[in-house]
Design a protein around this nucleic acid. Structure first.
Lengths: 183, 183
DNA sequence: CTCTAATAGTAGCGAGTCGAAACTATTGCA
DNA sequence: TGCAATAGTTTCGACTCGCTACTATTAGAG
């Protein structure tokens, strides 16, 4: 009977927290997947709000993500916008009711908030490192914040993305981008 | 458009890690719930391996836990033992194939293992604190390790539980107990 | 310039999860 | 003795999720 390793314990803790979090999210109009998708959309920039991006972010398939988004749209949490340039693609925007729902904090949020600030910071950075490495290992995208990207260019007049060759608003720059690449 | 709070970001990271972990666990004969239950049983002491304990640990219902355990038993990962003293209660033991399965480390385990040791420790303690507080808030049990319990008594001849009034083996003392109470 | 391959999204199926409620069996207590 | 509490199971319905097949659109090779 070998002692359980530290890694297994951490993995187990993550799993349990995920379950606790999921159990709480049900106490609203949304289920856990829908909540996660909504939360992502609220933090993603305008180039990263398509079903396929949500699928990548949530480590699921396009089919599943499509269903989740349709459900969110039915509940008036998001609104779809079809692109002019590429008639295949769709982008979703969070509605005001969606934003409102996201701003209500759950029990787990309060628990996290009750941790000392420095612990919160170290926790956030450790978890972020885990997610990035895990995603990298599985060949997925990293989904970092725009202004920390290799292609982000800051000038006096504003910001610019060298990859997509577009200028970026102040908001764009602080949001999550699916094209994000580490420096 | 308010900036997302640190707590929401942490919550989101936990959620994503849970999904990544769940996606990986499928690459075996077990689904995520079954894997979590098996992992718990392997670390729980002999007083804590009943369906109701698993239900408490996984923050689910007895009905759901019952299904999960039956599935595990069908797959020969665990074995049920009916109690003599109380004919209602059942205890599950992990089989050798179950132990074997648990010892194979997944991708996420490797990612966690690749973190520096001190980061692992601080991550484990932060997550543990979160789980404990969240469980407390929701009125659940804490499920700590036996020898850190208020009722644990260590003597020269061995250990003893003042609550259950039984003597404890060396293994018992290092396992998870559903009766665990903080000092 | 056309025809094929790749891409974005959706629909439907089937296996499985999960919670709620109803149910059986056993035990405890008044 | 009898009623309430407890342990576990079963069943049902709503939902998730991956898979496959499908449509529509776009890109690219020849």
């Amino acid at each position: 009977m070998t002692e359980p390793s530290q890694t297994q314990i951490i993995r187990d803790l993550i799993d349990r927290l995920g379950r606790l979090s999921a159990a709480e999210e049900w106490n609203g109009p949304l289920n856990p997947s829908q909540f996660a998708a909504l939360s992502y959309l609220a933090r993603a920039n305008r180039f990263s709000r398509a079903p396929s991006h949500v699928a990548d972010y949530l480590a699921t398939t396009r089919g599943t993500a499509s269903q989740t988004l349709k459900a969110l749209a039915r509940k008036d949490m998001i609104e779809e916008t079809r692109s002019e340039a590429d008639k295949r693609s769709i982008s979703y925007d969070v509605t005001t009711s969606g934003t409102e729902l996201l701003s209500t904090s759950t029990g787990l949020d309060q628990v996290i908030g009750s941790l000392p600030g420095d612990i919160q910071n170290s926790l956030a950075s450790s978890l972020k490192a885990l997610v990035l490495t895990a995603l990298h290992q599985r060949g997925g995208r990293s989904f970092g914040v725009c202004n920390t990207c290799r292609h982000h260019e800051k000038s006096k007049t504003g910001s610019y993305c060298r990859l997509l060759e577009v200028s970026l608003s102040a908001i764009d720059s602080t949001q999550i981008c699916h094209e994000h690449a580490a420096q």
